[in-house]
Design a binder for these strands. Structure first.
Lengths: 266, 266
DNA sequence: GTGTTAATGTCGAAA
DNA sequence: TTTCGACGTTAACAC
């Protein structure tokens, strides 16, 4: 188990080594002066410069410069790598179908080529995800509000599965949407779709019970009676915090926000 | 200008070279057997295995396995890299603040370490983006519909900037939302927010034209006149295609879909 | 800095 | 295969 490495190889030497490394299923890095062109969902061209090309045995290809987390060009896993010498340059091409996409890297100079056999350790343990948040709420439903009872997770609806479905202390259906971090208006829209779908499903009018005038006549009786009589689908957004605009939209829709972190404070 | 490369260096040798490469501002790759741990917005741990660590002079750090386009762990640009030998291993740590995040890679074996000076060519020419789609529509407004006149791009509203604002042949305000690829329901929600905001701004009720008193007086004249007289804010979604659910929501809202690719065919 | 949206988003799961 | 939503999304841009 050794890394194969060529320094300033000729294109022909680089080509041989590439072919061999493809066959071995190695992780390959090619550093050199190159141009890059991509055509597929979009199209791009990149002039000559020094870049690092990573070729993975699963078909992924990454072109990295000295800046950025995101590769300047890439090809997703499942692509097929091929190499050739054309017009005095080493051409590495990665193609895939559905959608049709092609990434072409043309090296005028290869500074270094390495082929690395990779073994083991692909199992990542990640904590603090949305699923952690759901687990936490199912264990302590009172975090939503006193009396809240979860009934179902991933409950199907015509608008897709809702994160948590339950009932509040008054027996109202409650749709809970979970977000692991601060959210913008889009999350409110998502919650609204679920609530709307559930209202339609249950045949409940979406508008708030018109407590308007009657309430004015006898506020005390209404507040109690209305709560028992009118069934209303509620929407609750659980997230550490919300943007101002999201808060507006929540208020518009009459939804509630529960501030909660994906992992317990301590 | 040469690539510096060490094969199976001792931790001490690797450390020296790393420090020197940090100072030079090189792009660094370290391939070896390591564990990876991350703590920040979430937390993760990765057991021992062969991986490739990329360290960029802008502070980005990437840990790649032999699979996937996305690094198994990473640190964004702006982080600070440090290296040390601890407990018989080469420890490379990358930290940043706001949010506080730490990535730690501990190598039990370094198979290869390379330091690469990188020059030039970081300017990517990308075609087929949403901006291309906008340009195309401004040049040929009839692609939306005959008689459409664009008036403004990125027009501000209380719901954010709308892609294109214009008027149709009847003088109705039109909000156009552009998407470069097939869209789901979220895009319809986005369009709906802009339309609603514009209706509020213009004081136009979203429901069927409230032509009010004048209409009531002479219904017959109104049917024809109303079309000319009633101003209604329209919503148009421009995208290559839409999902079924998105189509439903478009129909619900009374919005139109214009099928258009970001780039002209062939 | 926060807020908002685009992206060749990527990725995984479910229908 | 397509659709859908999460993601340590990342990245760009406006305020």
């Amino acid at each position: 188990m050794t890394v194969t490495s060529l320094h300033d190889p000729s294109h022909r030497e680089a080509l041989w080594e590439l072919e061999a490394a493809f066959d071995r299923g190695d992780l390959i890095s090619v550093f050199g002066r190159c141009t890059v062109s991509y055509e597929g969902r979009a199209a791009s061209d990149l002039g000559s410069g020094d870049r690092l090309l990573l070729l993975k045995p699963d078909g992924a290809a990454l072109v990295h410069t000295d800046e950025g987390r995101t590769p300047v060009n890439w090809q997703p896993p499942g692509s097929e790598h091929r190499a050739a010498v054309r017009e005095g340059r080493l051409r590495v091409r990665s193609t895939r179908t559905n959608p049709d996409e092609t990434l072409t890297v043309r090296f005028s100079d290869v500074h270094q080529l390495s082929a690395m056999p990779v073994t083991g350790g692909r199992d990542l343990e990640l904590h603090g995800s949305e699923e952690d948040l759901r687990t936490r709420i199912l264990q302590r439903p009172d975090l939503i509000e006193p009396g809240f009872e979860p009934r179902e997770t991933e409950r199907p609806s015509s608008a897709g599965p809702m994160d948590v479905f339950g009932v509040d202390a008054d027996g109202n259906p409650v749709v809970v949407e979970l977000k692991r971090r601060r959210v913008g208006p889009d999350a409110v829209g998502q919650l609204a779709r679920y609530v709307r779908a559930l209202r339609e499903e249950l045949g409940i009018d979406g508008n708030a019970p018109e407590v308007g005038e009657s309430e004015a006549t006898d506020p005390v009786a209404d507040t109690t009676d209305a709560a028992d009589a009118a069934i209303e689908v509620r929407g609750v957004l659980v997230a550490p915090s919300v943007t101002d605009r999201a808060a507006e939209r929540l208020a518009d829709r009459g939804f509630d926000h529960v501030a909660l972190e994906p992992t317990a404070e301590e």
